[in-house]
Design a protein around this nucleic acid. Sequence first.
RNA 1: GUGAGAUUAGCUCAGUUGGUUAGAGCACUGGUUUGUGGUGCCGGGGGUCACGGGUUCGAGACCCGUAUCUCACCCCA
Length: 401
Amino acid sequence: MVKSLRGMNDIIDSNKFQYFLQTATNVAQNYGYSYIETPLLEETALFKRSVGESSDIVGKEMYQFIDKGGHDVCLRPEGTAGVVRAFIQNKLDKAGGKYKFFYHGPMFRYERPQKGRLREFHQFGVESFGEISVYEDMNIIMMVCDILNNLNIDFKLKINSLGDSNCMPQYRENLLEFLENHLDDICDDCVRRKDTNPIRVLDCKNNKCQTLYENAPKLLDNLCPSCDEDFKILQNLLISNNINFEVDPNLVRGLDYYSKTAFEFISSGIGAQNAIAGGGRYDRLVEFLDGKATPAVGFAIGVERLLELIELPEDERDGWYFGALDEQYISLILSLSYKKRKNQKAVVSLKPRTLKAHLKAADKENARYCAIIGENEFQDHKIWIKDLYQKSESVIDFDTI
RNA sequence: GUGAGAUUAGCUCAGUUGGUUAGAGCACUGGUUUGUGGUGCCGGGGGUCACGGGUUCGAGACCCGUAUCUCACCCCA
């Protein structure tokens, strides 16, 4: 038997998926965002330049291949790069103004699958272009809060500031110097990180490293005045809007393009993969991908991780079930259901059964009304209807259905 | 990529030191003296015991390999 590839699942029971998508789409539209769809396949160079070759995503997790035309392409491992490319390619950077997009769809990373981590997974994300103000960072965070609250999901918000091109390079130097001086005391992973992505040592899980890093230079102590002020404004905004948060000076993002505000939404109860949404500001990325310098900020939600946490509201009895006690009335109920379906849900049993069997089936369908025609009803030009919720019965002329 | 544990019916799981025809609950399906569901009773279908080798008179069980799932690491949403 041919099976689906490892870490790639069918979505057979799509109720939660649809429920999430509707909720998130609603919120995004309430914030004035419009839908954008970009290709799943892009030139490999796009991700190398945006996400960064130092990241594991690009370094070892991309579905990359040479297509029949000899182009080096790969399945998108994340959503931002494609949206930024589309923004530049359609010359929206030159047009000026503000652009706000939301997107959703599959992403691909060649990882070892676990719960909340798949090779083909789904993200819902937004990207806001042209707003340099930290108030937009706040808008974006409020949007995630709205989505999670509407879905009744408990979360913790962690924020940090990564600094910008004024203060980050200097901080990086300071940190590198610190690491060089403690090479013998840090774990093997951190030695490796020092060369690939030194900022990442900050969220190392090794206790010995963490104790050591308490004395390391701190991101937040090295912010330039502009970054520092924005970060304070953001915290005040969160407080005045009653959004609980925690400043996590060790919060770093895995993708290279982030600067200034970085945030992560965490949930307990889904195991080690506890980040359900993440995002931040990426003011340099548009320019870096050959566009006109445009500030931008966005987030992405990991859909599968969120689905683990969603409790679907209970379905109420709804719609009609049509059944016949004898073969000869089936064409009649087929017509009646066709009529009823113009404005309501209606299912038809295509085979004659006993009344009891029909009631059982109607109940299983979670129908509100069970409508049955038997010999008695047919002779009187009537249909028997039971309201399965009210438990009341009635008999009406079937032309009035 | 590293380490660990799993895999028996559609689902959740039993299955004794290796020994007849591999079981249960749920789900599905049919019937239930006369036309009343969710909540009675009786029946029925459904398993290449993940796949491939090996040990043995005999393997669902023991050994090896592969695949997949799960957990942790790494990484990240």
